[in-house]
Simulated assay, not measured.
Amino acid sequence: MKELVRYHMVFSGRVQGVGFRYKANYIADQYRLTGYVRNEYDGSVTVEVQGSEQEIYMFLKSLASDRFIAIHDLKKEKIPVEDDERGFIVKY
């Protein structure tokens, strides 16, 4: 069984109004990651994502390669895994 990790991340840059949340949701589903994505009032986007280190790396790589998204800063912190989480959602 793969070892799960969870990260709390805050993305800054051109990350709102460019489909970031929907792209994150789509990619997370592809890699079977759990967590959520949410726009913040300051223009940043918060993501909590859970899966293997490799899957999360691929998630970040896919997000960064989107031509409409421009990530200028990423704050990333490892946080405790949530055992009962079953999917990835877009929060409003």
Rank of each mutant, 00 (worst) to 15 (best):
M1T: 10
E3K: 12
E3R: 11
L4M: 11
L4T: 07
V5A: 06
R6M: 06
R6D: 06
Y7D: 12
H8M: 11
H8T: 11
V10I: 14
F11M: 09
F11D: 05
S12L: 05
S12M: 05
R14F: 01
V15L: 05
G17M: 13
V18C: 02
V18D: 03
V18M: 06
G19P: 01
F20Q: 06
F20N: 04
F20Y: 08
Y22W: 14
K23E: 07
K23V: 05
K23P: 01
A24P: 10
A24K: 03
N25M: 12
Y26N: 06
I27T: 08
A28M: 07
A28G: 08
A28T: 07
D29I: 08
Q30R: 09
R32A: 14
L33D: 09
T34C: 14
G35F: 05
G35S: 07
Y36T: 03
V37S: 07
R38K: 15
R38F: 04
R38T: 01
N39Q: 08
N39L: 11
N39V: 06
E40A: 08
E40P: 07
E40Y: 11
S44N: 15
T46F: 03
T46M: 12
V47R: 01
V47Y: 00
E48C: 04
V49W: 06
V49L: 09
G51P: 05
S52W: 00
S52E: 11
E53H: 12
E55Y: 11
E55Q: 11
E55T: 11
Y57L: 10
Y57G: 14
M58R: 13
F59D: 04
L60C: 15
L60M: 13
L60V: 13
K61R: 13
S62H: 10
S62W: 02
S62T: 10
S62L: 13
L63W: 05
L63P: 11
A64R: 02
S65Q: 14
D66H: 15
R67C: 07
R67L: 09
R67E: 12
I71Y: 01
I71N: 03
I71C: 02
H72R: 01
H72F: 03
D73K: 03
D73T: 03
D73Q: 08
L74Q: 05
L74M: 02
L74N: 05
K75P: 02
K75M: 12
K75C: 09
E77T: 14
E77N: 12
K78F: 02
K78Q: 15
K78H: 01
I79P: 01
I79R: 02
I79F: 01
I79V: 15
P80Q: 04
P80F: 12
D83I: 09
D83Y: 04
D83K: 08
D83C: 00
D84M: 04
D84Y: 02
E85Y: 02
E85Q: 09
E85A: 09
G87S: 15
V90I: 13
V90Y: 02
V90H: 02
Y92V: 00
